[in-house]
Design a protein around this nucleic acid. Structure first.
Lengths: 226, 226
DNA sequence: CCCCTTCGAGTACGGTGTTCGCGAGCGAGG
DNA sequence: CCTCGCTCGCGAACACCGTACTCGAAGGGG
């Protein structure tokens, strides 16, 4: 029960050795520095050297606190998850989960790199577990199997992350490529239904907040029964 | 109208110059080699040097056919999308879209790296456009706005990709970490609802095929009306 | 046939994550 | 109080990576 096996998640490994010279840094500091770098210059800018420089130390020093760069990414994910303000469940689980989704969207918009991380490297640290506990507790009155509830959590998370990624976290060049491809396909004439869709035009794009709410509620309804 | 601007997607740029010495390779060959490497050793193994080596050439040569490594990834995505066997729409759009989702799942399982790519770098090449056209045509009788249909396509794609990623495309070490974290959270006792869920146990996990079908149909129902 | 253009690819550059080795520093045991 | 054993900090090094430059070589249209 001493914990700390190399293949365990970061959060279960002891941060410091119990004996010897104590460290000058902490995982919390490393995590904060990494988040700051990612916020400023994106996820690719989160290199060991860069994070270390932000802390005024050398890259190799970080490995005293962390096993790999992926550990840093996991820590970043959970650090942001600490930002949820979980309200006690009400009688209306749809409202409760919509609130969670809205908070997730807000966090993802504040940290655009998180969308990619959530999608490609789903990590559940302590704060992620708290979030999951909260969601499951909100769903207590819903007559669905436990696995269905876990699935709902996973789907909701992925849905919001993908949504925000399309909203803000995709490089402008990528979005431009999509548009050009679409326009080209329409112009080529071999995609009549797409052409019809394009002709129908986007009707001013209703306010994105309520569109998001609507999307989440629809998916939730489908997942967990009307 | 000559096409070929540097910021256009790969598929719109001419593959070869119209004059001068013709190339010995082709984008198709490069794409096939890259897919083979990814199938064998994962997406991270798809390096310019490795793909070039598989073709018996040098890394720098690939840049005669491709602007960057990201171009190669886009080509890989669309190459797999060529594998869809799109049936003519029936009267039952739910069945039609479920068929698409099943095919997508099968393709993703055959090429596990694609899940990550789809989630993090959604690319719509010619075959992707054909797929989108097909989905939209299946949805013709559905009374929903065009943007709602596009949204449904995006959600469906992301949903299936995330699902397959959790099924097969996540490294065993990652899945293990999730389990350990979960068990640890339950054992710590501060997550009663999670503990209840764990106690309730997974009831033999019903056959994953029908679970997938069920998930897709539920989400579709929520998205596009009962 | 020749020349212009493109192709092939060796070499090089600046970067990455990670390991090694070693001196420095701290805390505990005698 | 001193010393021993440990850990920490971190410069240097390794094996790669994506990509730019720069040639000589090679093929096809005039």
């Amino acid at each position: 029960m001493v914990a700390g096996r190399r293949e365990d998640p970061v959060w279960l490994r002891p941060e410091q050795a119990p004996t010897g010279r104590p460290g000058e840094l902490s995982r919390a500091q490393i995590t904060a520095a990494a988040v700051a770098v990612a916020d400023a210059d994106g996820l690719d800018a989160v290199t060991m050297r860069r994070v270390a420089a932000a802390l005024g130390t050398g890259a190799a020093s970080l490995y005293r606190y962390v096993l790999s760069r992926e550990d840093v990414l996991d820590l970043m994910t959970d650090a942001v998850a600490a930002g949820y303000e979980l309200q006690p469940p009400t009688a209306d689980w749809r409202r409760d989960l919509l609130d969670v989704a809205r908070q997730q969207r807000a966090l993802l918009r504040r940290h655009p790199w998180l969308a990619q991380l959530t999608l490609v490297r789903p990590a559940l640290g302590p704060h992620g577990m708290d979030l999951l506990e909260h969601v499951v507790s909100c769903l207590a009155p819903v007559p669905a199997s436990g696995s269905a509830k876990l699935e709902a959590f996973a789907v909701l998370t992925a849905l919001v992350a993908a949504h925000v990624q399309n909203e803000v976290a995709l490089p402008a060049a990528e979005r431009r490529k999509q548009l050009v491809s679409f326009a080209h396909a329409v112009a080529a004439g071999r995609h009549p239904h797409l052409a019809a869709l394009a002709a129908q035009a986007a009707p001013g794009a209703a306010d994105p907040e309520s569109a998001f709410d609507d999307l989440v509620l629809r998916v939730l309804g489908g997942l967990l029964g009307a």
